[in-house]
C-alpha cells in the first residue's frame, strides 16, 4: 500500500512545557480580570448603599451625626439642608442637585457599571475557552498523541481503491454531503430565479404606472412618451414660437445685419431642432401661455428696438454684449 499521509508527534509541534506556559499565562490574565470584576462589583454595592442613603436623608429636616475631625476624632454635629447635594460629576465638576436628581445620576452610574461587568464576563469566558484549549493541548502532547495528516483524495479515486476497510464509509458520507450541497445550490438557484421574476414584475408594474400618469400630460401635448426631462424641454419650446415667428420677419427687413440675426437664429435653431414636431402642435397653446417669460421673449423685443440703430452704423461687436449695453 502506498503512503497516504504523514504522522507527527503532537509534542514536536506543541511541546508540553510551552503549552503549559501558555495556559499559565492565560490563567494569570483570567485572575487579573477576576480582580477587576470584584472591584467593579464592590463599586456597584457601594453605589446601591449610597442610593439608599441619599433617598433616606431628606426624610428628616436634620440628622444628628458624628462629624469626623482629623484622622481619629469625631464630635457630635447636626446635618441640615438634607435635600441639597453636591454631586461630583467627574473631572472636578460638581453640580447642585436634590435627593431625587442625585439618585437618578447614581442609577445611571450603576447601569454603566453593570455594562462593564457584562463586558468583563464576556472577556473572561473567552479567556477560559482559550485556557481549556491550551490545557487540552498540553495534556495531549504529554500523552504522546500523534497527528496524522492525509492528503484529501477525490471520491472517484476512493471508489477505485476500496482497499482501506474504514475508508469507504467516510467517502460515502462525503458524497452524501456533496449531494446535499448540490441540492441546496439548486434550491438557491430556484429561489434566485423566483426573486428575479418578482423583481421584473414589480418593475413592469412601476413602468405601467408611470406611463399611465404621463399619458394624461401627453394628451394635451400630443406626444408619445415623456419623462420629466422631456417635459421640461417642452416648456422651453413653448415660448420659442414667439421668437421663431418674429425672427424671419426681422431678417427680411434688415438684410445688412443678417450675420447678427443669423447667429441668433442658428443658436435658436439648435435649441429648436430637437423638438420641432412638438413645437408645431404647441403653437396655438403658446399664445395663451403667458407663464413663461424667459429671456427669449425679451430677446425678440430687443431685436426690434435695435433695428434702426444697426442700419445706421454697422457695428461689428458681438450682439450679446450689445443687448447687455442696451439693458443698462
Amino acid at each position: 500500500m502506498e503512503k497516504k499521509g504523514t504522522v507527527t508527534q503532537l509534542s514536536s509541534i506543541f511541546p508540553a512545557e510551552e503549552a503549559q506556559k501558555a495556559s499559565k499565562r492565560v490563567e494569570e490574565a483570567i485572575t487579573e480580570r477576576q480582580q477587576q470584576l470584584n472591584q467593579i462589583k464592590g463599586f456597584i454595592d457601594d453605589n446601591i448603599s449610597l442610593i439608599n442613603l441619599v433617598q433616606k436623608l431628606p426624610d428628616e429636616t436634620h440628622h444628628n451625626i458624628m462629624v469626623p475631625f482629623g484622622k481619629a476624632a469625631f464630635f457630635p454635629g447636626r446635618l441640615i439642608h438634607t435635600n441639597e447635594f453636591m454631586v461630583l460629576l467627574g473631572e472636578g465638576y460638581y453640580a447642585e442637585r436634590t435627593s431625587k436628581q442625585t439618585t437618578e445620576i447614581l442609577k445611571r452610574r450603576g447601569k454603566a457599571l453593570e455594562t462593564q461587568v457584562e463586558s468583563l464576563k464576556a472577556i473572561m469566558q473567552d479567556l477560559k475557552a482559550e485556557a481549556s484549549f491550551f490545557d487540552a493541548t498540553a495534556y495531549e502532547s504529554a500523552e504522546g498523541l500523534v497527528e496524522i495528516r492525509e492528503d484529501y483524495v477525490d471520491e472517484d479515486s476512493s471508489g477505485t481503491l476500496p482497499t482501506a476497510g474504514y475508508e469507504n464509509p467516510d467517502s460515502t458520507s462525503l458524497e452524501v454531503d456533496n449531494r446535499k450541497g448540490a441540492d441546496e445550490d439548486e434550491e438557491y438557484e430556484r429561489l434566485k430565479l423566483r426573486m428575479d421574476e418578482l423583481e421584473r414584475e414589480e418593475e413592469e408594474a412601476e413602468r405601467a404606472n408611470e406611463s399611465e400618469s404621463s399619458d394624461e400630460d401627453e394628451q394635451t401635448q400630443n406626444e408619445a412618451n415623456s419623462t420629466i426631462s422631456q417635459n421640461s424641454m417642452n416648456q422651453e419650446v413653448r415660448s420659442s414660437p414667439v421668437e421663431a415667428s418674429d425672427v424671419p420677419g426681422v431678417s427680411k427687413d434688415g438684410s445688412s445685419h443678417g450675420d447678427h440675426i443669423a447667429l441668433n437664429n442658428s443658436t435658436m435653431d439648435k435649441a429648436l431642432e430637437l423638438p420641432q414636431d412638438a413645437k408645431k402642435v404647441q403653437t396655438p397653446l403658446s399664445s395663451s401661455n403667458t407663464a413663461f417669460t424667459g429671456s427669449i421673449v425679451e430677446h425678440a423685443h430687443n431685436i426690434g428696438m435695435q433695428l434702426p440703430e444697426q442700419r445706421s452704423g454697422a457695428r461689428s461687436s458681438k450682439p450679446v454684449s450689445r443687448f447687455k449695453m442696451q439693458r443698462k
Binding site: M86, L89, G90, E91, Y93, A95, E96, A112
Partner: peptide, 27 residues
C-alpha cells in the same frame, strides 16, 4: 471616558442648575 460621562450628565442638567468646578481647594 470620565469626560464623556460628565458631558452626558451636564447635558441632562436643567438650564438653571448650579455647576461648580473644583479648582485647588475651592469650588
Amino acid at each position: 471616558g470620565e469626560n464623556e460621562l460628565v458631558l452626558k450628565e451636564l447635558d441632562l442638567l436643567n438650564e438653571d442648575a448650579n455647576v461648580y468646578k473644583l479648582i485647588g481647594p475651592v469650588l
